[in-house]
Amino acid sequence: MALAISLLAILIAVGALAHNGLEGRRHHVRQIEEFYLTRYWRLLDDLPSDALICGDSSGQETADQKAAYVRSARLYLRLCEDELEIRERGMVSDDTWDDWVKGMNNQLDRWPVSIEWQNIRDGALKQQTRKQFKHLRQVEGSVKLYDPCKWKRRSMRWYHGL
């Protein structure tokens, strides 16, 4: 009887440790998502107001306004590539990823991001950025939403807190 109680106590302790480890991974994933969400909102806060309400450039911008649009669009594109890279490493949950990748696809088609993305993808900046944005290039226009996460099996995703 004492052996059975000892084995039960060991199983409970192992289960508790496993549960704590899983919760720790989930907490880590949530912290990373929160960090990137904060970066995203900071970018939106710094974006010129015209870019938030207009669907396209008026063509009447000053040089400073154009520079602000370009800077904001490039920072957003870099943020997207960073998010894709952390998803590849398994540090973004499945639910969050679904929202992020849909938002990326949407923003790649909206001004001012669309203009800067076109310059990077196949325009004036193509030579300088050929080896950059490898994941973002796959997001654009993908019929099935792109997911760089290496863990395709549901059990592995669950185990890593995704």
Rank of each mutant, 00 (worst) to 15 (best):
F35K: 15
A51R: 05
C149Y: 08
Y69I: 01
S6L: 05
G24W: 06
V29Q: 10
L44S: 02
G59F: 02
E34D: 09
V113Q: 15
A2S: 13
R71K: 15
W158H: 07
S142M: 12
C54F: 07
H28M: 08
A67N: 02
R71V: 00
D82Y: 06
I53R: 12
Q132T: 12
Q127M: 09
L17I: 09
N20C: 13
G21I: 06
C54L: 08
F133P: 03
D109K: 12
S155Y: 09
Q128N: 14
R137M: 05
K126W: 08
R30S: 10
W100T: 10
G15W: 09
G59S: 04
G161V: 04
L44H: 14
K152T: 00
Y36Q: 11
R153T: 00
H27E: 14
Y69R: 03
W100N: 10
G90E: 09
R154M: 00
L75F: 04
A73D: 01
H160S: 09
K126G: 00
G15E: 09
E34G: 12
D64I: 04
R89W: 05
W41P: 03
K134Q: 14
V70E: 14
V92C: 09
D99P: 00
A67I: 00
L108E: 12
Q132K: 14
K134C: 05
L7D: 12
R42T: 06
A124M: 11
K66G: 00
K66A: 06
L145S: 15
H19V: 03
K150E: 05
D45S: 12
M156Y: 02
I120D: 08
